[in-house]
Protein backbone atom coordinates (compact mmCIF):
# COMPACT_ATOMS: atom_id res chain seq x y z
CA UNK A 1 0.00 0.00 0.00
CA UNK A 2 1.26 3.46 -0.89
CA UNK A 3 -0.12 6.72 0.51
CA UNK A 4 0.97 10.14 -0.76
CA UNK A 5 0.51 13.17 1.47
CA UNK A 6 0.89 16.65 0.02
CA UNK A 7 0.22 20.21 1.15
CA UNK A 8 1.82 23.63 1.53
CA UNK A 9 4.32 24.91 4.06
CA UNK A 10 3.46 24.46 7.74
CA UNK A 11 0.09 22.87 6.97
CA UNK A 12 0.46 19.83 9.24
CA UNK A 13 1.55 17.17 6.70
CA UNK A 14 4.01 15.48 9.06
CA UNK A 15 1.56 15.40 11.94
CA UNK A 16 -1.09 13.86 9.72
CA UNK A 17 1.30 11.30 8.19
CA UNK A 18 2.39 10.26 11.68
CA UNK A 19 -1.25 9.91 12.79
CA UNK A 20 -1.96 7.78 9.73
CA UNK A 21 1.00 5.47 10.31
CA UNK A 22 0.16 5.09 14.01
CA UNK A 23 -3.26 3.72 13.02
CA UNK A 24 -1.80 1.21 10.55
CA UNK A 25 -1.22 -2.38 11.51
CA UNK A 26 2.35 -3.63 11.84
CA UNK A 27 5.07 -3.56 14.43
CA UNK A 28 8.05 -2.23 12.53
CA UNK A 29 7.86 1.47 11.77
CA UNK A 30 10.71 3.11 9.93
CA UNK A 31 11.08 6.84 9.45
CA UNK A 32 13.30 7.85 6.54
CA UNK A 33 14.62 11.37 7.01
CA UNK A 34 15.94 12.88 3.77
CA UNK A 35 16.75 16.37 5.00
CA UNK A 36 20.43 17.18 5.37
CA UNK A 37 21.20 19.25 8.41
CA UNK A 38 23.29 22.24 7.46
CA UNK A 39 22.15 25.19 9.57
CA UNK A 40 20.40 26.17 12.77
CA UNK A 41 16.98 26.24 11.10
CA UNK A 42 17.28 22.64 9.89
CA UNK A 43 18.58 21.55 13.31
CA UNK A 44 15.43 23.05 14.86
CA UNK A 45 13.20 21.40 12.26
CA UNK A 46 14.76 17.99 12.89
CA UNK A 47 14.39 18.49 16.66
CA UNK A 48 10.71 19.39 16.26
CA UNK A 49 10.01 16.36 14.05
CA UNK A 50 11.93 14.07 16.43
CA UNK A 51 9.91 15.35 19.39
CA UNK A 52 6.69 14.76 17.43
CA UNK A 53 7.70 11.14 16.77
CA UNK A 54 9.24 10.52 20.19
CA UNK A 55 6.73 8.02 21.62
CA UNK A 56 5.50 6.54 18.34
CA UNK A 57 7.98 3.67 18.09
CA UNK A 58 9.85 4.69 14.95
CA UNK A 59 13.32 3.65 13.93
CA UNK A 60 14.82 6.72 12.25
CA UNK A 61 17.03 6.23 9.21
CA UNK A 62 18.86 9.24 7.81
CA UNK A 63 19.00 8.73 4.08
CA UNK A 64 19.41 11.83 1.91
CA UNK A 65 19.69 9.92 -1.41
CA UNK A 66 19.40 6.53 -3.11
CA UNK A 67 16.14 5.10 -1.82
CA UNK A 68 16.52 2.11 -4.14
CA UNK A 69 19.65 0.99 -2.30
CA UNK A 70 18.03 1.06 1.12
CA UNK A 71 17.29 -2.29 2.71
CA UNK A 72 14.26 -2.46 4.98
CA UNK A 73 13.06 -5.38 7.00
CA UNK A 74 10.20 -7.11 5.18
CA UNK A 75 6.79 -6.19 6.54
CA UNK A 76 7.89 -2.73 7.66
CA UNK A 77 5.69 0.30 7.51
CA UNK A 78 7.80 3.13 6.15
CA UNK A 79 7.27 6.88 6.38
CA UNK A 80 9.46 8.85 3.98
CA UNK A 81 9.84 12.57 4.54
CA UNK A 82 10.07 14.15 2.07
CA UNK A 83 10.20 14.15 -1.75
CA UNK A 84 11.27 17.82 -2.18
CA UNK A 85 14.38 17.27 -0.04
CA UNK A 86 15.15 13.97 -1.74
CA UNK A 87 14.90 15.63 -5.16
CA UNK A 88 17.06 18.57 -4.10
CA UNK A 89 19.70 16.17 -2.77
CA UNK A 90 19.69 14.04 -5.92
CA UNK A 91 19.72 17.06 -8.26
CA UNK A 92 22.08 19.43 -6.49
CA UNK A 93 24.26 17.25 -4.31
CA UNK A 94 25.76 14.71 -6.65
CA UNK A 95 22.92 12.24 -6.99
CA UNK A 96 20.75 11.07 -9.84
CA UNK A 97 17.23 12.48 -10.07
CA UNK A 98 16.21 9.92 -12.72
CA UNK A 99 16.69 7.15 -10.16
CA UNK A 100 14.23 8.60 -7.65
CA UNK A 101 10.99 7.10 -8.91
CA UNK A 102 12.41 3.62 -9.59
CA UNK A 103 14.03 3.84 -6.15
CA UNK A 104 10.73 4.67 -4.50
CA UNK A 105 9.00 1.85 -6.41
CA UNK A 106 11.66 -0.55 -5.12
CA UNK A 107 11.20 0.79 -1.59
CA UNK A 108 7.43 0.31 -1.89
CA UNK A 109 7.96 -3.32 -2.95
CA UNK A 110 10.13 -3.98 0.10
CA UNK A 111 7.69 -2.32 2.51
CA UNK A 112 4.30 -3.54 3.67
CA UNK A 113 3.14 0.07 3.63
CA UNK A 114 4.84 3.19 2.36
CA UNK A 115 3.69 6.68 3.26
CA UNK A 116 5.40 9.41 1.26
CA UNK A 117 5.24 13.07 2.25
CA UNK A 118 5.69 15.59 -0.53
CA UNK A 119 4.96 19.29 -0.90
CA UNK A 120 2.90 21.61 -3.02
CA UNK A 121 5.34 24.23 -4.34
CA UNK A 122 3.45 24.98 -7.53
CA UNK A 123 1.23 27.96 -6.76
CA UNK A 124 3.38 31.01 -6.13
CA UNK A 125 3.24 32.20 -9.75
CA UNK A 126 6.92 33.11 -9.75
CA UNK A 127 9.13 32.23 -12.72
CA UNK A 128 12.47 31.13 -11.30
CA UNK A 129 15.89 30.65 -12.93
CA UNK A 130 16.07 27.54 -15.10
CA UNK A 131 17.61 25.19 -12.55
CA UNK A 132 14.75 25.94 -10.14
CA UNK A 133 12.16 25.59 -12.94
CA UNK A 134 13.70 22.21 -13.73
CA UNK A 135 13.39 21.30 -10.04
CA UNK A 136 9.70 22.32 -10.03
CA UNK A 137 8.99 20.32 -13.21
CA UNK A 138 10.70 17.25 -11.80
CA UNK A 139 8.89 17.51 -8.47
CA UNK A 140 5.55 17.83 -10.28
CA UNK A 141 6.35 14.76 -12.40
CA UNK A 142 7.40 12.76 -9.33
CA UNK A 143 4.23 13.76 -7.46
CA UNK A 144 2.11 12.75 -10.46
CA UNK A 145 3.89 9.39 -10.87
CA UNK A 146 3.59 8.65 -7.15
CA UNK A 147 -0.10 9.63 -7.16
CA UNK A 148 -0.69 7.24 -10.07
CA UNK A 149 0.70 4.31 -8.11
CA UNK A 150 -0.68 5.37 -4.71
CA UNK A 151 -3.77 3.82 -3.15
CA UNK A 152 -4.47 6.99 -1.20
CA UNK A 153 -3.55 10.59 -1.99
CA UNK A 154 -4.50 13.46 0.22
CA UNK A 155 -3.76 17.13 0.58
CA UNK A 156 -3.49 18.41 4.13
CA UNK A 157 -5.06 21.87 4.32
CA UNK A 158 -4.23 23.52 7.66
CA UNK A 159 -4.49 20.23 9.55
CA UNK A 160 -7.54 19.01 7.61
CA UNK A 161 -6.95 16.03 5.31
CA UNK A 162 -8.72 16.50 1.98
CA UNK A 163 -8.82 13.27 0.01
CA UNK A 164 -7.75 13.49 -3.65
CA UNK A 165 -7.63 9.79 -4.50
CA UNK A 166 -9.06 6.92 -2.49
CA UNK A 167 -10.01 7.18 1.14
CA UNK A 168 -7.86 6.92 4.25
CA UNK A 169 -9.92 3.90 5.32
CA UNK A 170 -8.47 2.00 2.34
CA UNK A 171 -5.02 2.15 3.91
CA UNK A 172 -6.03 1.23 7.46
Amino acid sequence: MIALITGGSGCGKSTYAEKLIARMPGEKRIYIATMQVYDEESVKRVARHRAQRADKGFTTVERPKDMGGLSVEPGSTVLLEDVPNLLANEMFDGGCADDIFPGLEALARKSANLIVVTNDVFCDGIVYPESTQEYIRRLAALNAALAQTADFVCEVVYSIPVSIKGDSTCVL
Binding site: S9, D120, V121, C123, D124, G125, T132
Partner: peptide
Protein backbone atom coordinates in the same frame (compact mmCIF):
# COMPACT_ATOMS: atom_id res chain seq x y z
CA UNK B 1 -4.94 33.73 1.99
CA UNK B 2 -3.14 30.44 1.54
CA UNK B 3 0.51 31.40 1.09
CA UNK B 4 2.42 28.15 1.60
CA UNK B 5 2.20 26.45 -1.81
CA UNK B 6 5.35 27.78 -3.44
CA UNK B 7 9.08 27.27 -3.60
CA UNK B 8 10.59 27.79 -0.16
Amino acid sequence: NEVGAGIV
